[in-house]
Design a protein around this nucleic acid. Structure first.
Length: 456
RNA sequence: GGCGGUAUGCCCGAGUGGCCAAUGGGAGCGGACUGUAAAUCCGUCGGCUUAGCCUACCGUGGUUCGAAUCCACGUGCCGCCA
């Protein structure tokens, strides 16, 4: 994108133009790329590509020559109802395969979920029930819809074939899989060494999921790097079953928004949910440390390596502001999930609320009606009604630490009054009353970094 | 099945009869500084009608003027043996 070279990356119109271009890309047809170009495009975002990009290109060519669909497998573990940006990384690769004209098959592990993928686990995890699986799956498809065209993809439950596997079949395959292959895994060895449980079911998990690859005769399988060992087992089992081993592609795990160096995960709270609101997605991305901007751009957008290089260079030279680039990233992700208009709106909201610190322009602030809550004690209102704090004591603490403020905004002017701890017990009506006459002014209540508007 | 160990606040982890709402670290929260950054510094971190009161150290009973701390039983987890 030529715009990246010279333009002011902080300007709204530049960003709008840029996002417009990348949005077109997200649905761009890639089927006219040669097999080699396709392989290279995929390789540029992968950590492992086993055995090689050349083999991937050959397989694409062979499928084309034989007039059969080229099958890309992606396994969904229906263990959590929330999908976040970390999951989006391989999904985006799947989207590219789809746009290259290939056949993406999502495998929903209804049977394997009952075993529980042991990868990276330090202890056994509880198996899921059928209800869990159904609930988790229902949200999944909806959440990845921005990336995947489900009209053209397959969604299959592995119970379809796994429920029919006979014991002799299973034993037949297991007999040819060396135990050492699983024992080499560090996570298993650690668990055994530390005396944590490891069930035989978990031990053969990878063999069971490999059955999926055999069942659909996969050409390629995608997964996060944490899946590498499982994916290699898929290759092994396909060979045992006299099929051509699939090409394994692993994608990086993105670091969490807190910059702690650990991967994005729900349990650490350092994630951006795909179903989050535009403002939330934008805000969470703005809070990532600067050094994550570049990897995020690479893994979550359709930017080319060249484009990322241009921006990185400008950052080093100081001709682009780190925050401006991060705002573009935030816009990219919001545009992907919610569309261009939402991205522009989130950008404007962010500017109004945090950069100009004028709340009048901000749209999505919670509102409290003075009429309805005049008799409510402030502390109760903030903790119960607004949910800004976990308890009245917490509100009290914020007040003690000068975080509780009443803001009167009239025209462009702001007047801030610090509220004391005593006011936590006063009613909202009394506090507003003390602020004096308010003709034509807007009232805001600030609790730490959270804000609410008070409507007369 | 036998023997031994262990169980503390969101997490890790001190505390072995009163000075314990409980040391320390992490997370969280607030303030300063900023780009709602990051890093840093300071503060805070059970609840409530907050100079006070209430509920808490796996559960239930007990000893004691007084227990997170001692005893009994139960439960979970861990180790060794079978």
């Amino acid at each position: 994108m030529h715009i990246l070279d010279g333009a002011d990356l902080g300007a709204d119109y530049t960003v709008a133009q840029l996002l417009g271009e990348t949005t077109v890309r997200r649905s761009l047809d890639l089927s006219d790329l040669s097999p080699q170009e396709q392989a290279a495009l995929v390789e540029s975002r992968a950590i492992n590509l086993i055995p090689s990009a050349a083999v991937l290109a050959e397989k694409i060519e062979a499928a084309h020559a034989a007039g059969r669909p080229f099958v890309v497998k992606y396994g969904i573990d229906p263990t959590s109802p929330d999908v976040h940006l970390g999951h989006a990384v391989p999904i985006i690769i799947a989207s590219r395969f789809q746009r290259m004209g290939h056949h993406v098959v999502f495998i929903i592990g209804d049977v394997t979920a009952k075993i529980g993928d042991p990868s990276g686990r330090s202890s056994e995890r509880p198996p899921l029930t059928d209800e869990d699986i159904a609930r988790n799956l229902s949200g999944y498809q909806q959440q990845v819809t921005p990336f995947i065209d489900f009209e053209r993809a397959d969604l299959r439950f592995n119970g379809e074939w796994l429920n029919k596997v006979t014991l002799p079949e299973l034993v037949g395959v297991l007999a040819r899989v060396p135990v050492s292959m699983s024992l080499q895994r560090e996570d298993f060895r650690t668990r055994l060494a530390e005396g944590h449980g490891l069930s035989v079911a978990e031990f053969v998990y990878s063999v069971v999921m490999a059955w999926d690859s055999v069942a659909i005769d996969a050409d390629v399988e995608l997964g996060g790097v944490d899946q590498l060992l499982n994916l290699q087992m898929c290759r092994k089992v396909m060979e045992i079953s006299d099929q051509a081993a699939e090409v394994v592609i692993t994608t990086p795990l993105i670091e969490g928004t807190d910059g702690s160096g650990t991967k994005m995960s729900k349990s650490k709270g350092n994630y951006v949910g795909l179903s989050a609101s535009p403002d939330d997605v934008y805000g969470r991305l703005m809070s990532i440390p600067d050094h994550l901007t570049q990897p995020y751009l690479q893994l979550l957008t359709e930017w080319t390596d060249d484009e990322i290089r241009v921006v990185t260079k400008r950052l080093e030279e100081g001709t682009a502001h780190p925050m401006a680039v991060k705002r573009i990233l935030a816009g990219e992700v919001v545009a992907a999930l919610h569309g261009l208009d939402a991205a522009a709106a989130a950008r404007a909201e962010f500017t109004a609320r945090f950069s100009k610190r004028s709340f009048g322009d901000a749209q999505n602030i919670p509102v409290v009606s003075l009429k309805d809550h005049a008799e409510d004690a402030l502390g109760v209102l903030i903790s119960r009604t607004l949910g800004f704090a976990s308890s009245v004591s917490a509100v009290r603490r914020v007040a003690q630490q000068n975080g509780l403020r009443l803001i009167v905004e009239a025209g462009g002017d702001q007047q801030t009054t610090q509220l004391t701890e005593a006011s936590v017990q006063q009613t909202l009506g009394d506090i507003v009353g003390e602020a004096g006459p308010l003709a034509g002014a807007e009232l805001y209540l600030k609790v730490g970094r959270k804000v609410t508007r008070i409507d007369a």
